[in-house]
Amino acid sequence: MGLLKKNDQTAVRNRLSEGMKDPVKILLFISKKEEDCHYCNLTKDIIEEVALLSEGKIVTETYVKEENEELAEKYGVEYVPGFVILDKNGEHRNVVFHGAPFGHEFATLLEILLIVSNGFETPIPEELIKKVMEIKEPVKIQAFVTPTCPHCPPAVLTAHFFAMINPNIKSEMVEASEFPELSAKFGVSAVPQVVINNGDGGFVGAYPPDNFYEEIIKVLNK
């Protein structure tokens, strides 16, 4: 306990108590052996600390991925640490986190917790929601980020919002420094880098939601 500074603990407690509506559950998948996954414990610790600050509104369940492969597959968790946030009905809407949510991505975690708790109500404008809902083909978005990257949270958030809007869209936050092979596969050396459909398309930088949407359409029209 005690990853967060005292002031931050109070701020998080207040934010959760003011902002959360329904309870949520975080399902975390970690490795069997600690040495295989440097950030698994950090992730477990921070989400448990946040849960403690939520006065019961957030519960966490941790699974060893190697022993629960079917469950991990059900939720789209491919790597460890990997976690999803379920609403009161058990829905996660294909929003996945691969990597520890620290640095600026801690803010992303808080935002998503609040939004899932409030019925997945995203701040995307109506006009764009309508357009995103019309996407019929499967789309996989991987947003590569690092904890010190300040432009990264908007990229992750927009990707996650799109996934929440349309069940054909799956969105992943990928913490690049924890997954060097995956990052190298897509040539990630600057963040945020958004990879669409395993490299069919993508872009680097924080695009506003409308432009992000256009990039997805470009890939689907190829």
């Binding site: 620290f102 801690f106 803010a107 808080l110 935002e111 701040p123 404008p125």
Partner: peptide, 19 residues
Amino acid sequence: MVFFDLGSTLEPTKNKELE
């Protein structure tokens, strides 16, 4: 170098319908 940024609350005015 582990830190936790709380970010700002996503205010309802952001990305709301523009006038």
